[in-house]
Amino acid sequence: MTNQEKYNKAFMTALEITEGQLSGLKYQEIEAWDSVGHMGLVAALEDAFDIMMDTDDIIDLSSYEKGMEILSREEYGIVF
């Protein structure tokens, strides 16, 4: 599975959404991505990539695209 597929799967599983809903998706835009759903999403991403996200990055994870930007940083080193 590619990193992009892992990333998408984490979103789809944690938020119970389809692949078609991913692009442009923003925090609190859908009911499932509330503060509780956010922590579930973070856990799913951490499990998928075997990482532990910094608190500031968890707070900063405001959209589907922003998440890829964060995880692409040197600290996490995930290539999409």
């Binding site: 922590m39 856990a43 951490e46 499990d47 532990m52 608190t55």
Partner: peptide
């Protein structure tokens, strides 16, 4: 608070 947040990541799962 910080240590609790980190630990809860594992405990929550």
């Amino acid at each position: 608070i910080s240590m609790t947040q980190l630990a809860v990541k594992l405990m929550g799962r």
